[in-house]
Structure formats: C-alpha cells, structure tokens
Amino acid sequence: MDDLTGFQRDLLYVISGFDRPSGQSVGSELEEYYEAEINYGRLYPNLDELVEREFVEKGELDRRTNYYAITEAGREAIRARREWEEQYVDV
C-alpha cells in the first residue's frame, strides 16, 4: 500500500466500510469527506487501479452499475498501514 496515492488509500478505506458499494456511492462518500466534487475521470481510473492491484474486486450489480468489494489483500494492506501509522500517531 506504500505506493498508493492518498486518494487511492481513501477509496480503499471507503470500500472496506460498505458491502459492495457502487462507484457512484464511493464517489459520493469521498465528495462529502473532501467537500469537493470528484469527477469520473479521477474516480474510475483509480478504482480500476485498485482492481488491477487486486486490493478490490469489481462485479456487476446490474447492466449499468458495478460494485466494488474489498479483497483479503486489500484488508491486509489496510491492517499493515494501520499498524505502521500506530507507531507514529498517538490518539
């Protein structure tokens, strides 16, 4: 996960918090967090990168809508990141 962008990490965190969200749902969550519009040209290529890296699985909800689900590799990447962060952040 150390070579993911911050945006890609945020995508991974959001996807892990839902049960098979659509790309639109993930984008909406990040828009709320960032307080800015997330355009499709930024969202979907980054989701595709996470799929290619096997951190996220992509499937069809219906003919027009895909879902995204965290994989075990994605969960492990998040766990490793959290352990690393805990060395430096005391909250």
Rank of each mutant, 00 (worst) to 15 (best):
T65D: 13
R9P: 01
L12H: 04
E29W: 10
N39C: 06
R42C: 05
K58M: 06
V56E: 01
I38E: 05
A69S: 09
V56N: 03
R9E: 10
S16I: 02
S16Y: 03
R42D: 07
P45N: 05
D48H: 11
V14Y: 10
L11S: 10
A80R: 07
D48S: 15
V56M: 02
E76I: 11
D3H: 07
T5Q: 09
P21A: 12
Y33K: 04
A73R: 05
L4T: 15
D2N: 14
R53K: 14
R64Y: 11
D3V: 13
G23Q: 02
E52P: 00
S22R: 09
E29A: 12
T65K: 13
Y68C: 01
R20L: 07
G27S: 06
W84Q: 04
R64P: 00
K58A: 10
E52F: 03
I70C: 06
G6T: 12
V51L: 08
S28N: 13
F18S: 13
P45S: 03
E49V: 14
T71Q: 09
L30Y: 04
R20Y: 06
E35L: 12
A80Y: 04
G27Q: 01
G59E: 09
V14C: 04
F18L: 14
T71R: 07
S25P: 02
E37Y: 06
R63D: 13
T5R: 08
L30N: 01
R79A: 09
Y88G: 15
K58T: 02
E54L: 10
S22F: 10
L50W: 03
Q87L: 12
E60M: 08
R53F: 02
W84R: 15
W84G: 04
G17L: 15
R20D: 09
V51C: 10
A77Y: 00
G41T: 07
M1D: 12
N39M: 02
Q8I: 04
D3C: 14
S28A: 14
E60K: 14
Y68M: 01
M1E: 08
E37S: 05
S28L: 11
R20H: 10
R63S: 12
D48P: 01
G59K: 13
G41W: 06
V91E: 14
E35W: 03
V14N: 10
F7S: 12
R75Q: 15
D10T: 10
I70M: 01
E85W: 15
Y34P: 02
N39Q: 06
L30F: 01
Y40P: 04
A36V: 07
R79E: 11
E35N: 11
N66M: 01
G6L: 10
Y33P: 00
I70G: 00
E52A: 08
R64G: 08
E52S: 08
E37T: 05
A77D: 00
E86R: 13
R81K: 10
D10A: 08
Y13P: 00
R81E: 07
P21G: 13
S22P: 09
E52K: 04
A73P: 03
T5N: 09
I78Q: 05
A36K: 13
R20M: 06
N66G: 00
R9T: 06
L4K: 08
E52D: 08
G27Y: 01
F7W: 02
F18K: 13
I38R: 03
I78A: 07
Y67T: 03
R53H: 06
F7T: 14
